[in-house]
Amino acid sequence: MIDKLTRFTKTITRRSKALFADGGTVQDGGDESALLPRPSGAFFGSLPFWLPPFLLMGFFVYGAIGWNFVISLTETSGFGAVDYSQLDGEQYTRALGDPTFIEATTNTFGLLVAFTTVCLGIGLLLAILMDRKLRFDNGFRTIYLLPMSLSFVVTAQFWLWMYNYNNGLINSITSTLGLGRYRWISDPELVLPAVVFALIWQFSGYAMVVYLAGLRAIPTDHYEAARTDGATTFGLYRRVIIPQLKGATISAAVVLMVFALKAFDFLYSLTGSYIPPEGSDILATMMVRQAFRLNNQAYAAAIGIMLFVLAIAVIAPYLTYQHKQGEL
């Protein structure tokens, strides 16, 4: 890929040189600043490119977060204009005393941790299996990654049917194995693991792709050196390969956590309403319900801000790490 690109860019360089060589027409290159742009020149020249997207994105992302923070300090319910005259942190203290909030927080962390670790584990295993000069490896990869291209709304429909009490495939399997039938969705004890399993089905292929790219970036002589030292396959992976996948693990984990925070769409689609199955309420679903069904907009805004802080706690170290690696 990179080789191809280099060759490609070389051709283009030649072509573009030809293009501009006849083109004293472009600018009569006499001006010194046009030869080597000074830093300030580069800054002003770059403005028309990044500033419009930056303003649009900044307004909707950071402007909205700032506004959301102010709303979270009010008492607004959602009807009528927001009264900004009295601002305090009452919604935040309210959250800490709210059992629904505590449960949603516990569920959120449970989902994040279980989903991310299992996805990484399966992804790594798949990647190791795939990294063996296989035939049809593109075909396998296409299949493993297929669920990820589907909407949460779509996969929720599939899994509702899989988890159906009387006729679902999962219960057919468990009852054939003599384990009996379970109410996967309506049992508050089972629904969260069931949802996590469905999400793992959907996204473990993603972890595989990231790990596979990581494995293929490891120079072959590392494998050979370890084998000359008499390492077993298991030892080879444990001591030589897996430590080199740290970067891949970190990026995949961060992205998977972001996916998990978007599980709102999946939980909403299980019931087609703002009330997810009992026992599966996470902060994402609770926030939307408080905002658009129960009309506690200030409270919902506070939950949104807390989710944001949670995300920043994960993202800030990640971006710092990426910057140090020169990856940013």
């Binding site: 770059s46 994105m57 992302v61 950071y62 926030m287 919902a300 944001f308 995300a311 971006l319």
Partner: peptide, 24 residues
């Protein structure tokens, strides 16, 4: 340009729940 870039990239990871009320 690094701070601007960081603002762009961090935007990927924002939980949308933090912007929904202002957006609507």
């Amino acid at each position: 340009q690094l701070p601007i870039l960081v603002l762009f990239i961090a935007g990927i990871f924002i939980p949308y729940q933090a912007v929904l009320i202002p957006l609507s």
